[in-house]
């Protein structure tokens, strides 16, 4: 392996890992504010990617509109999912609500197949061409663009949590739900906002992933699993740790692909298993 290829794999790994990080951030937003582990997270990713591909290829919108459109569509699906499936179950146990999200993932997958068909859909690349690295490897602009988009999301998210009333309310709910209610914060409203924001982040991930790998209705669960693996790798409940976990997972996968791409997914799951055995709290937590 030359230095050029190592750099290539590293950057590609960071790009894919950044996408996993977005999914894991989405997991975190819902888990911290509502306690729910959302098994439909991957479906939000799928809706974002397929939605954007449909807006571009089906509706005929320009890419620059279709891509944010896909993320907004996913956010809308997240909001409707909460209102239709989880809010009516507000008084039930946490386990019940977690199982509801499994049902939700099945419904969303089937709905996507009905609406958008079962064929994979494509989005044009974010940028053509690439940068020739020493040793002859070509680093595509696409990966760098994804990396830049992910890098822009993180400070935007930090700003949202720190500087908006909605962000503060979500933080408060995550810290101490009862104390938040005493401040006049409505838990059902915050939960709806959490689902919307989380689905928006997942949708972004789907939109960024589709030009690289295409998207189909049944890819959600594996992507959700990757985001979940990223969250576990870093440490559940800690957003920054989830980002680090995502990046680590992406890099790990890319270097594993260099050996044999057959083991890419296996490796991600094996890493989680091993980590759960030796460091159940995650890499970064205590």
């Amino acid at each position: 392996m030359t230095w050029g290829i190592a750099i290539l794999l590293l950057v590609k790994g960071l790009a894919v890992g950044g996408i996993y990080a977005l999914i894991s951030l989405g997991f975190n937003v819902i888990q911290r504010t509502t306690g729910i582990l959302n098994f439909a997270q991957g479906e939000f990713v799928m809706v974002g990617g397929l939605g954007a591909a449909w807006l571009w290829g089906g509706v005929g919108l320009p890419v620059a509109v279709a891509m944010p459109g896909g993320a907004v569509l996913a956010a809308g699906v997240g909001w409707v999912s909460y209102q239709a499936a989880l809010r009516p179950a507000g008084g039930t146990s946490l386990t019940t609500r977690i199982i509801i999200t499994i049902g939700l993932s099945i419904v969303l997958r089937a709905a996507a197949a009905l609406v958008w068909g079962t064929d994979p859909r494509q989005l044009p690349p974010l940028a053509e061409g690439g940068l020739t690295l020493p040793g002859g490897a070509v680093l595509d602009w696409q990966s760098l663009a994804v990396l830049a988009a992910v890098a822009a999301c993180m400070p935007a998210l930090a700003w949202f949590f720190r500087c908006t009333a909605t962000g503060r309310a979500m933080q408060a709910c995550a810290g101490d739900p009862d104390a938040a209610r005493l401040c006049g914060i409505r838990p059902d409203r915050v939960a709806a906002q959490a689902f919307t924001l989380s689905a928006f982040l997942a949708g972004m991930a789907g939109v960024l992933l589709t030009p690289m790998l295409s998207m189909s209705f049944d890819r959600g669960s594996m992507l959700g699993l990757k985001g979940f693996a990223a969250a576990i790798l870093g440490g559940v409940g800690h957003p920054v740790a989830g980002v680090v976990g995502g990046l680590a997972l992406g890099i790990l996968e890319q270097f594993a692909c260099w050996g044999s791409s057959v083991y890419k997914d296996t490796l991600a799951l094996a890493a989680v298993l091993v980590l759960l055995l030796i460091r159940p709290r995650g890499l970064l937590v205590r």
Partner: peptide, 16 residues
């Protein structure tokens, strides 16, 4: 909210 800043705690006082 111990994880949040003093300022954010004060701001949450005005939420209601």
């Amino acid at each position: 909210f111990p994880e949040m800043t003093v300022l954010d705690n004060l701001r949450l006082g005005g939420h209601a």
